[in-house]
Amino acid sequence: MIINIEGLEFGYSSVPILKDVTVTMRGPRFISILGPNGVGKSTLIHCINKILSPTVGTVIIDDRNVKDISIKEMAKMVGYVPYSANDTFPLTVVDTVLMGRHPHSHRGTLDSDLDIVYETLDMLGILDLAMRSFNELSAGQHQKVMLARGLAQEPKVLLLDEPTSNLDVRHQLEVAKMLKRLSRVKEILVIMICHDINIAAKYSDEIILLHGGTVFDVGTPKEVITRQNLEVVYGVDAKVIDDEGVPHVILRDSIQEKKQLEAGVTVPETRDTATEAI
């Protein structure tokens, strides 16, 4: 499957978020989208699965413009794991994952849907949680159940909005590793938004680095995670070392603060002017 994004622009009521994003994602593969807060990472993946419609530009999935795909059809092709899920009225884990079968509801029985739920829970190693209530789970378990719901959609593309946030280091590693495995086993295109550069670099096949509302760099972790890129995009001074062929980032300082210290005066607050000056 191929997702072709061309000249994508999006703005919330005249405030532009994404400007001229052009990128191609090809699966099966595990891709991470990196970039600072507010750069438009979530907006970008929401434009892929029609939660938002782009102002300008096109998103094409396997030769079909997403404009011409109904949201029900979209739900069969593209799974989505949100940043957080509302659990005011919690269901059991089985019922929560069963929701992922909704786009396919015209075919299949409860029994065959339960088979799929079983397989998904088994694969993610959370079978023991099956009859637990969703709101009783820990953050890591929560995340895995949401992942299971996305997988129960049997999608060709799986989008995840910060699946590793709120997790401790072990769960971060587990979830990222699982996503990589899924892209291989299920032969799907997995696209995740991530804030942890090292996690993304360790497991991703490809990294898309966003900056200023557009794609700054695309490539393998080794190509994208460089000292220069981190300096421009995140405004940090970092050391990138090689850990068995994978780039590993050691953060040193925020460039703005470093400058402040060196100059001994206050620099204007906006990070953009600071990074553009470099």
Partner: peptide, 16 residues
């Protein structure tokens, strides 16, 4: 049920 999960989830599961 799907609606109680939030609008984003609902849309991604094919519900308007």
């Amino acid at each position: 049920n799907i609606l109680t999960m939030g609008d984003e989830s609902a849309k991604s599961l094919g519900l308007n």
